[in-house]
Amino acid sequence: MTYAVVATGGKQYKVVEGETLRVEKIAGEVGAEIVLDSVLLARIEDALKIGQPILEGAAVHATIVEQDKSKKVLVFKYKRRKRYRRMQGHRQPYTALRINRIEA
């Protein structure tokens, strides 16, 4: 089984070839191919390579499938007996990526 752990947007994701995952927003048009070069760990067949902190020469090639915003999260502040209420909504932008291939 081939997989890798990549860091993007301040988070780490385990990726497998062919899967689609949502990450923090990355600039680019839908259909564009991007290269994630901050690979922390890669396993190709039986060989496991661990970076310190990243693997040199390793990369994950992905295609941007979607640029959108996630569902609305409501933030409600309330203080009893003080007539204080504040409602605020937030939609976090994301980028959906399809993993094409993993190079180590």
Results as ranks from 00 to 15, higher is better:
Ala42Asn: 02
Pro53Lys: 02
Arg98His: 04
Ile44Cys: 02
Pro93Leu: 08
Tyr84Cys: 10
Gln52Cys: 08
Gly57Pro: 00
Val39Leu: 07
Tyr84Asp: 12
Val35Gln: 00
Ala47Ile: 11
Lys82Glu: 05
Glu33Asn: 12
Asp68Phe: 13
Pro93Arg: 09
Arg101His: 10
Arg101Ile: 05
Ala32Asp: 09
Arg85Pro: 00
Thr63Ile: 14
Gln92Lys: 15
Thr63His: 02
Gln88Pro: 06
Leu41Gln: 07
Lys25Pro: 05
His61Pro: 01
Tyr78Leu: 13
Glu66Lys: 13
Glu56Gly: 10
Gly28Arg: 05
Lys77Gln: 09
Ile44Asn: 13
Glu66Gln: 12
Gly28Gln: 12
Lys49Val: 13
Ala58Asn: 02
Lys77Arg: 15
Leu74Pro: 01
Ile44Asp: 01
Gln67Trp: 01
Asp46Thr: 13
Asp37Cys: 00
Arg101Ser: 13
Gln88Glu: 15
Ser38Trp: 08
Gln92Cys: 05
Val23Gln: 00
Glu29Pro: 00
Leu97Ser: 08
Val35Thr: 07
Arg86Val: 14
Tyr84Glu: 15
Leu74Val: 12
Glu24Gly: 14
Leu48Ile: 08
Glu56Ile: 08
Pro53Tyr: 07
Leu74Ser: 13
Arg91His: 05
Val65Trp: 08
Asp68Trp: 06
Lys77Trp: 07
Pro93Asp: 12
Ile26Tyr: 03
Gly28Asp: 06
Glu24Met: 11
Tyr84Gly: 06
Ile34Val: 09
Leu97Asp: 07
Tyr78Phe: 15
Phe76Met: 11
Ala58Gly: 02
Ile102His: 02
Val23Gly: 07
Glu56Trp: 00
Val23Ser: 10
Ile54His: 07
Ile54Val: 14
Glu66Thr: 11
Ala32Met: 11
Glu56Asp: 14
Arg81Ile: 04
Lys72Thr: 15
Ala62Asn: 07
Asn100Glu: 15
Phe76Thr: 10
Lys49Asp: 07
Ile34Glu: 03
His61Trp: 00
Gly89Val: 01
Val73Ala: 10
Arg86Cys: 12
Val60Met: 05
Ser70Ala: 13
Ala59Ser: 14
Leu41Phe: 14
Arg85Tyr: 08
Ile54Glu: 01
Ala32Cys: 08
Ile99His: 00
Arg101Trp: 03
Tyr84Gln: 15
Arg91Leu: 13
Gly89Tyr: 08
Gly51Asn: 00
Asp68Thr: 15
Gly51Glu: 09
Ile44Leu: 11
Leu40Pro: 04
Glu66Pro: 01
Thr95Val: 10
Arg101Cys: 04
Leu41Ala: 11
Gln92His: 10
